[in-house]
Design a protein around this nucleic acid. Structure first.
Lengths: 346, 346
DNA sequence: TTGTAAGCGTTATCAG
DNA sequence: CTGATAACGCTTACAA
């Protein structure tokens, strides 16, 4: 019996027609009963449900979707750095993916996930292909080609994104200004007097400007003048941090603490300053921004500002569904919190 | 013009019929030309492709799938601990999810992801609903109800899993024995003489037994007698590690190093022994297994055995596709590597 | 090489 | 409240 094996491995194919026969009703009644249509009498519904259970019937979603014209699915595109080891992906993105899936599922949607990193695999025609009703793009602003690609999609596309480099995108984003203010106040409370910001107000990265702005106004609120030590463009973040810290140390500018607009910059600065013999956190305090994984490994581990990824996922989904429904606005700012570790003194 | 806004936000609906008209051919020719059917003449194909491009045509996948009877999709179910914060999920699982998506996409499949944690949301009828052609379940063996649920699905279901507690599941797994041997040899090389295993040979966790077995035979190969310090059942892993270490210290059994069958157990032991004044790694060396995130945070950071998650994702997909094709066997063991950190001496 | 026509299994619109 | 009967948009025999 050679065929038997193959047959055994096939999932049975039961249609609504079979259920109709089993329950002694019409096919459309089956559809309505199972969909919870209120016009079906309770006895009939029960009969149908029982028949469906007996036959182990499950709706063929493809047929249903074809007919309905909706997929009940959201696409999530994870943008990676080209050629980057997946393991090095910021764990925040993974957590965000998880909470996005959870939020989608809470709203009755499935999630189709794809990882994209370069021109060969950029793809966002989920709606046109009727694979999904909308799209969420999660990625680092660094991957410029990716954002160019997604920026040029049909303007009618329903989508939201995390990590977009510019305001022209339908973004959801951390509350960067509040986070920066949190960092500044923390440093002030811990007794640091001269806080310098390592960053840029002209970076294409929207976030960086927002973080600097938050820093600057928190400083002014505290009656202090903001000081910006600019990072050089076109270098790896950690290197930017190193160099900016070196430049700061050599400038003669008095400082006793650093607020860096990203964790990687903070980590670079931390290494540079520790290498120059500064005691951290006693002599110099450092606070980063992002809650990147490596921050926990450093010596001392990095105090940082972290976004609430649970809320982030929920906001992404809410905003996308609102866009799909043609509703104009929902919140796009995700709350942040301070994670105190070892790079600021107790 | 109130309606206009809504219309503008709708993705255009172009069918193969429209393309056929535009190109002056029949609908089936369009389908064949776009699918790369060799029976279509090159000029015709070009005409069709041009017409499709002009109209911005994209295949409606639902219709295609309904007709074909296949979905071109794999489902990935991530099993979480019920009520556990997603952030605390072992980052290995996220990395595994990523590499699984990549491997699936390399084989031309989409990936439908869902996070499930308790009876209310366990669900595995992807094939019956024609939502996916097969399923990959990734999860911690701890979530017993989840494995019970998935174990009771239709035996014809095409699926593979990572983290299954028993051999009865279609598993793919780390090369636990090789990993344990790696750990033992590392400790021997670093000059530890009396290596005790913290674990169990009777745990429902298949992995634990395999790791113990690997430890035991590596010890015998080195002419040493294996010593097992059993963990107590039904406690949190870290607590198991603590207690086992305490019991070991008080037993009078001579030891200078510990191989724990999981990182969390190792971490518990590390804390317990450090608390009792043992110097780590000088007096006592400790090696864990899993590459768990917290291991990098501990003082000293934990030396451990890590699985190659890139290969893991690829193997999961390979094995699933083979099962779907009715082919019997593909490799199910994922290679491991030693990550030397600070809990073993240099 | 291309066209015709028959479904795939639903949901939704009409009647009754 | 329920039953016929059209679509939904594609792929694939079967003809030509």
């Amino acid at each position: 019996m050679p065929q038997t094996t193959d047959t055994a491995r096939r999932i049975t194919r039961v249609t609504s027609f079979d259920v109709a026969e089993e329950a002694g009703v019409s096919q459309s009644t089956v559809s309505r009963a199972l969909a919870g249509d209120t016009s079906i009498s309770e006895p009939t519904r029960q009969r149908v449900i029982a028949a469906a259970a007996r036959l182990n019937y499950q709706v063929n979603e493809n047929a249903a979707r074809l007919r309905r014209g909706k997929t009940g699915t959201l696409a999530v595109v994870m943008i990676c750095r080209a050629g980057q080891d997946r393991k090095d992906l910021n764990p925040f993105y993974f957590a965000l993916l998880g909470s996005t899936c959870a939020a989608a599922s809470a709203r009755g949607y499935e999630v189709l996930v794809s990882f994209q990193d370069s021109a060969e695999n950029f793809w966002g025609h989920y709606e046109e292909r009727r694979k999904a009703d909308g799209m969420i793009v999660i990625g680092t602003s660094e991957n410029t080609p990716a954002w160019e690609y997604f920026g040029q999609l049909d303007p009618a596309t329903n989508w939201v994104c995390w990590g977009a480099p510019s305001d022209a995108f339908p973004w959801v984003r951390s509350d960067n200004e509040a986070g920066a203010a949190l960092a500044v106040r923390h440093m002030l409370v811990r007794g640091y007097e001269r806080i310098v910001c390592l960053g840029s107000e002209t970076s294409p990265q929207r976030q960086f400007k927002e973080r600097y702005d938050g820093y600057a106004s928190a400083m002014r609120d505290a009656g202090r003048e903001p000081v910006l030590q600019r990072i050089e463009r076109g270098l790896p973040r950690e290197e930017q941090g190193r160099r900016a810290a070196a430049a700061l140390a050599e400038s003669g500018q008095p400082f006793d603490s650093i607020f860096a607009v990203s964790d990687e910059i903070a980590l670079g600065a931390l290494k540079e300053l520790a290498g120059r013999g500064y005691g951290i956190p006693d002599q110099i305090g450092i606070v980063g921004f992002d809650g990147v994984r490596a921050g926990a490994w450093s010596t001392p581990p990095l105090t940082t500002i972290e976004s609430d990824f649970e809320t982030a996922g929920a906001l992404l989904v809410e905003r996308l569904l609102a866009a799909m429904a043609g509703e104009p606005e929902t919140p796009r700012r995700v709350p942040v919190r301070l994670v105190v570790r070892g790079s600021t003194r107790p």
